[in-house]
Simulated assay, not measured.
Amino acid sequence: MLYTIEDIRRAVDAVPLEISPNGIIARGELLGKGRAVDYTVHLGWDLLIANLCDRSWGTFNMSLLRHIRKLQQSGVDVTSILETAQLEDNHWNWLNKSLSYKTDCYKWFFLVAENYPQAACLVYHPKNSVAGPSNIFYIEYIAAAPWNRENALNERIFKGAGAKLLNHVIIYAKDNLKLDPGFSLHSLPKAIQFYEKIGMTAFPKYDKEGLKFFEWVVPPNELGGQIYENP
């Protein structure tokens, strides 16, 4: 019997909403709205968390789009709001991606706080560096929860969730996957400024489908520390 993605989603929805402590590889604190909240980083293929990304992030994005539509209907010029809205990954289906990327060359990472995924990242390894003879990792997908980004609906709940998760991925890749310091990715247009800010190097030769290619090139005398957190 063949199961559709909706069959799988209904089965996952029927499971009690309790994120397992299995697979926790790191802990820390997120800051936001004058408070500190504990977080955990989970390693591994997890359909429950992936589905929760789709459900909770999708609900927020729908609320944001309805809010923008109401502003427009009331006569507000929403051009600047749409330009700053970070909705380029709104179509990403994390559960579907989980079903497509589950071999050992892919690693899933989720940053969880208050029983919700605050950021998610999928990496491929090993990946040849374009800057030198190194084996690094490639980020297939990375995103912070939409309520942790600048948006027209609410003040960001937590700041730096995506950057914190990426720091833990960097550490894991060096210590556990024995990869050389560094990583590469193709950036969504509205994320370009962030990757430039943290010092990644653009290699236009490897751009594809309107996505700019970056690599985080680590100087030989550095073992690979942390990236800068998004303020």
Rank of each mutant, 00 (worst) to 15 (best):
P21M: 06
N22G: 10
N22S: 12
N22V: 03
N22I: 02
G23Q: 08
G23W: 05
I24M: 07
I25N: 08
A26S: 15
A26G: 07
G28Y: 11
E29Y: 14
L30P: 03
L30N: 07
L31E: 15
L31C: 08
G32H: 12
K33R: 15
K33H: 12
A36C: 09
V37Q: 10
V37M: 04
V37L: 01
D38F: 01
D38S: 13
D38K: 11
Y39K: 04
Y39W: 01
T40L: 00
T40N: 11
V41F: 03
H42W: 04
H42S: 06
W45V: 03
W45P: 02
D46R: 13
L47H: 02
L47E: 08
L47F: 08
L48R: 12
I49C: 03
N51R: 15
C53N: 07
C53S: 03
C53P: 00
R55S: 03
R55C: 00
R55M: 04
R55F: 03
S56A: 13
S56Y: 08
G58T: 05
F60T: 05
F60D: 09
F60G: 12
F60H: 14
N61D: 11
N61F: 00
S63K: 14
S63E: 15
L64V: 10
L64Y: 02
L65K: 14
R66I: 09
R66G: 09
R69G: 10
R69T: 15
K70E: 12
L71S: 05
Q72I: 02
Q72A: 11
G75N: 04
D77N: 14
D77M: 01
V78Q: 01
V78R: 01
L82K: 14
L82R: 13
T84I: 06
T84F: 09
T84R: 15
Q86I: 11
L87W: 01
L87E: 02
E88W: 09
E88D: 14
E88H: 09
H91M: 09
N96F: 08
N96L: 13
S98R: 04
S100E: 14
K102W: 09
D104F: 09
Y106I: 05
W108T: 06
W108M: 08
F109C: 11
F109N: 10
F110C: 02
V112M: 04
V112C: 05
A113R: 07
A113C: 06
E114C: 06
N115K: 12
N115L: 06
Y116R: 15
P117R: 02
P117C: 04
Q118I: 00
